[in-house]
Design a protein around this nucleic acid. Structure first.
Length: 973
RNA sequence: GCCCGGAUGGCGGAAUUGGUAGACGCGCCAGACUCAAAAUCUGGUGUUGGCAACAACGUGCAGGUUCGAUUCCUGUUCCGGGCACCA
């Protein structure tokens, strides 16, 4: 009886569905465990071998936990809204819902081949109204809440209106004054600095009150810049913009201000940082999130501005280093600064205008990454608040409007970027740190004693910070300030394929729909193009705009910010998730996904969870208890090398491909030599050089589909039929009859022809082999290139495992004979190793432990049920199909899923002696078998008797003998 | 530019807490079986020198700490991920 994976896998996949073995109850006496994969977007390209890496890891862990006696929730669903489906709709006229459904079907059939233990009865799809109804509902909770800084939690906006009625806003200042200052409404921008009283509130009309409340809501409407492409008449995503022009068509892209929705995530900045202490994420992940939030302490300082236009304007800067105030040699403001026009001098006007033109189509990232220093003087000056020194005000792209106050005080002796700017524009540098500054580069020390610093002379910088802040505060020139790099999250898109906002505009007031009106369904549109001013496709639907409905839609992360909750209670039509269900399942115990979500999805879903917690809708404020990041699987591309000659008289319509080794050899040769070399090859390809010889030769590497390459050897026949016979006339110059391809590691992508479809591998080797091989490649967290070749080794392992039970000729060989001590040692060592490896997500070493066990049992000729039955239980999370099959051969009637993970018995694990490596001066020279309970003296005498040791000592006495029990021995000479 | 990772044989990787570098698998080489091939099995395989015993070198690069460093520290190079509208 041979190992027939096809029969086994088909049979059990059917049986498992029939028996609903993966169905999970919200009610169980067992402890719960929640394993979640990051929400997949069902792309049209389907899955390649890089995608399931995390799913296999989480599936192994879910199955393992079930064997360990847990009630395991392991769901899967689709983050189905998104830009690609909309793009496809624009290009092909297919409704996104239809293309998405097709993609999902394809996706699902690929997943089904791999034997995952997903409870599909809990499947969710963010684009279904029954799902986004609750996304809209949660949005309304955000809309109807504000962050109460006194109680440090989200509370109802109605309550805030009540407070305003009684006491105005003096105890609840406007949360984000910088954004307010940029508000086009003058009345509102005044609010930034001036609190209002109860009487003021009573005097405001409804519109004014609503505008004020909007400044507090957790989901609010404001204005923000987007990438506007006039030629395409649409707003573009960042990755659709390349070097300032659109990816499609190469049209110019400029920034345009549009009305946008935002989530006030900045109010949660501190809690998002604090929460990191309670979750088990990698330190680097926590660091990335903390850096993104970018909390810093410093001061806001007001500088009076002196310009030839007069006026009494001040400019406010944020700095983390107020101690360097006397080293400020120039100021820089962001080009977006609204009041720039008020201060620019006549002489500088043209230059500033030209500079603004240049910055207009520069992205934030380009502006920060730019190595070339650019900027221009405004002709105006700021006055140092302490000594009135005149400081020139410059404008430069390296200062971003969104961070701090959008203006900085530049200290060239202490900041590298400021230093380079000053050097480039010949701005004189004031040295306030004496010998610590060498004039060649800035020094950002905090430990220097200040010089040239008025009342700070002689003070150590770190101490000066406090002195300056308190003086600023007492003089009313500035104040202590904590600042965050993070900005509020833009929460609207000018797109069709997203959740509609449950918002109706009535006389300029955003009014929420009632709960009964949810879901507000996406209307059908005739085409998916944008509105005339870039508002998004919903703006061209009359019935939609007639009702005053919001024409933006929500971004991709709306549905994915709370999906982990919906899986707990997927069919609930009275709540997004019942409190009972969310209390039972609690946090996600294990979350598996890529680091690319570090600061996007993870922060947003942490925010939503905190808000839901504040509003008492769920009982915990961190969604994911433990996070494991899977690495990327890179593609291993294959190349063929086409040899083209220029200056041929006759070509015979052939394309010549030379094997990789030959291509390398030919490349440095002159064209005529290559040509005569080729002519010498047999058969001659019928090339005739023009008079005077060939003019040139070029070797071009061409990506070839990795699926028609065996290792590095090209399947020539398959190549000739590839791409509908594009290379049917190809001829080949091979090496020993083999065409060897070039190899390069690149991103796995269709356009490099290096994608490998998991379904193909399942067909060829079976899902068990495929799953195990993905794990065997290396640590889950690490990125690594894919190489199909190695899968054979795992396939051999499965056949070897099978042969412990069944022999090709003899049939059944497993028996009920009692196991020997040696066999039990193998078993128990393996139980311990696989348990430890699985617990620490070291699946690759778990696989190799399985291989070692099967190799050893094979050598021992062990076919005993006493050993093999526990063995297949511990292997079943990795290779579920074959283990289930063998489990039933042993006469078990229930699924192996419900077996109990065996315990490793210490009796079989202890050793009495060890082969110690004996090193001389740290270099291992020999081995000695010594009892584990030997003392230092005993060891020393044994070691000194040893011939090898004697040889190395050459009669000298050892200086020292280091003996680390159960580790090693080192003789120091 | 900024933030976060990574680098070990021909290849993927192992070495869990500073203690035998290269487990396990691929590939390659040799052998068995076979008319032959595939499959399977057995043995070998870091590099250099040597018949061998053995020796020297060896974990991106340059230093340092230590009896001992792939592991810790400093600097540096290259590669990957993210940088706010891809998801």
């Amino acid at each position: 009886m041979e190992y027939n994976f096809r029969r086994i896998e088909e049979k059990w996949q059917e049986q498992w569905i029939k028996d609903q073995v993966y169905r999970v109850n919200n009610d169980s006496p067992k402890p719960k465990y929640y394993v979640l994969d990051m929400f997949p977007y069902p792309s049209g390209a389907g899955l390649h071998v890089g995608h399931p890496l995390g799913y296999i890891a989480s599936d192994i862990f879910a199955r393992y936990k079930r064997l360990k006696g847990f009630n395991v929730l392991h769901p899967m669903g689709y983050d189905a809204f998104g830009l690609p489906a909309e793009q496809y709709a624009i290009e092909h006229g297919v409704h996104p819902a239809i293309s998405t459904a097709t993609n999902i079907k394809n996706f699902r059939s690929q997943l089904d081949r791999m034997g995952f233990s997903f409870d599909w009865s809990r499947e969710v799809n963010t684009s279904y109204p029954k799902y986004y109804r609750w996304t809209q509902w949660i949005f309304l909770q955000l809309f109807n809440s504000y962050y109460n800084r006194s109680s440090n939690r989200a509370e109802s906006i109605a309550g805030l209106a009540g407070i305003f009625e009684k006491e105005g806003n003096q105890n609840h200042p406007v949360p984000s004054p910088p954004s307010l200052r940029q508000n086009p409404s003058a009345a509102l921008s005044a609010l930034a600095d001036q609190p209002f009283k109860a009487a003021d509130w009573a005097s405001f009309d409804e519109k004014a009150r609503e505008d004020i409340l909007m400044e507090y809501r957790l989901a609010y409407c404001g204005y923000g810049e987007v990438n506007w492409c006039e030629a395409l008449g649409t707003v573009l995503a960042n990755d659709e913009v390349i070097n300032g022009v659109s990816e499609r068509g190469g049209y110019p892209v400029v920034k345009k201000k549009l009305r946008q929705w935002y989530l006030r995530i900045t109010e949660y900045a501190d809690r998002l940082i604090e929460g990191l202490a309670d979750v088990d994420f990698s330190e680097s992940m926590k660091e990335m999130q903390a850096n993104w939030i970018g909390k810093s302490h410093g001061a806001e300082i007001d500088f009076a501005v002196e310009s030839e236009k007069g006026g009494t304007r001040t400019m406010r800067v944020y700095t983390t280093r107020p101690d360097t105030i006397f080293g400020v040699d120039f100021m820089v403001v962001a080009p977006e600064t609204g009041w720039l026009g008020d201060i620019v001098s006549m002489a500088q006007e043209a230059e500033v205008k030209e500079y603004m033109e240049y910055v207009k189509n520069r992205s934030d990232r380009e502006r920060q990454a730019e190595k070339k220093i650019s900027g221009c003087f405004t002709g105006a000056y700021a006055l140092n608040p302490f000594n009135g020194r005149k400081i020139p005000i410059w404008v430069s792209e390296y200062v971003l409007a969104g961070y701090g106050t959008g203006a900085i005080m530049a200290v060239p002796c202490g900041d590298e970027r400021d230093f380079r700017f000053a050097s480039h524009f010949n701005i004189p540098i004031t040295n306030i740190i004496g010998g610590e500054f060498n004039g060649q580069q800035a020094n950002d020390t905090r430990d220097a004693k200040l010089e040239n610093s008025d009342f700070l002379n002689g003070v150590v910088m770190s101490a000066a910070i406090e002195i300056v802040i308190s003086r600023l505060e007492s003089l009313g020139l500035g104040k202590r300030k904590k600042n965050y790099k993070m900005r509020d999250a833009a929460f609207s898109r000018q797109r069709y394929w997203g959740e509609p906002f449950p918002i109706q505009w009535k006389s300029g007031i955003a009014t929420p729909l009632s709960v009964e009106e949810l879901p507000l369904e996406l209307p059908h549109v005739a085409n998916y193009g944008p509105g005339s001013e870039g508002e998004g496709p919903l703006a061209v639907i009359d019935e939609w705009t007639k009702r005053g409905l919001e024409t933006n839609t929500m971004p991709g992360y709306a549905g994915s910010s709370w999906y982990f909750l919906r899986y707990m209670d997927p069919d609930n039509d009275r709540a997004f998730c019942s409190r009972k269900a969310s209390d039972y399942w609690g946090q996600v115990d294990l979350y598996v996904g890529g680091t690319e979500h570090a600061v996007g999805h993870l922060l947003y879903s942490r925010l939503w969870t905190k808000v839901l917690y504040d509003l008492d809708l769920i009982g915990y404020q961190e969604p994911y208890k433990k996070l494991v990041n899977q690495g990327m699987i890179q593609g291993s591309s294959r190349f063929v090398y086409r040899l083209d000659f220029t200056g041929l008289e006759y070509k015979n319509n052939v394309e010549i491909f030379v094997s990789s080794g030959i291509a390398k050899r030919l490349m440095p040769m002159p064209a005529h030599e290559i040509f005569s070399w080729v002519k010498k090859q047999s058969p001659d390809f019928g090339l005739v050089a023009a008079e005077g010889g060939v003019a040139g030769a070029q070797i071009s590497p061409i990506h070839v589909d990795v699926n028609i390459v065996d290792g590095v050897e090209l399947d020539i026949e398959a190549f000739k039929t590839w791409r509908s016979g594009e290379f049917a006339n190809a001829v080949f110059i091979t090496e020993d009859g083999r065409y060897i391809c070039g190899v390069e590691v690149e991103k796995m992508s269709k356009r490099y022809f290096n994608t490998v479809n998991p379904s193909d591998l399942c067909d060829k080797y079976g899902a068990d082999t495929y799953r195990m091989y993905e794990m065997f490649l290396g640590p889950v967290e690490q990125s690594k290139p894919w190489d199909t070749k190695g899968i054979e080794g795992v396939y051999r392992f499965l056949k070897k495992l099978w042969r412990l039970f069944y022999d090709e000729n003899k049939g059944r060989v497993w028996n009920e004979t009692g196991a020997t001590e040696a066999e039990l040692r193998v078993l128990h060592r393996t139980i311990k190793k696989i348990e430890e490896d699985t617990e620490r997500f070291s699946f690759n070493t778990g696989v190799s432990a399985s291989m070692i066990a099967v190799n050893e049992l094979g050598e021992l000729g062990c076919h005993k049920r006493e050993v093999l039955e526990p063995l297949i239980i511990i292997l079943s999370p990795y290779i579920p199909h074959v283990c289930e099959e063998l489990w039933h051969h042993f006469g078990n009637n229930s699924s192996i899923l419900d077996a109990v993970f065996p315990r490793a018995d210490n009796k079989y694990l202890i050793q009495s002696s060890k082969n110690y490596p004996v090193a001389l001066n740290g270099r291992t020279r020999t081995e000695l078998n010594i009892s584990l309970d030997a003392t230092q003296d005993q060891v020393e005498s044994i070691v000194l008797e040893n011939e090898t040791v004697k040889k190395w000592l050459e009669g000298r006495p050892p200086k020292k003998i280091i003996y680390v029990k159960n580790k090693m021995i080192n003789v120091v000479v």
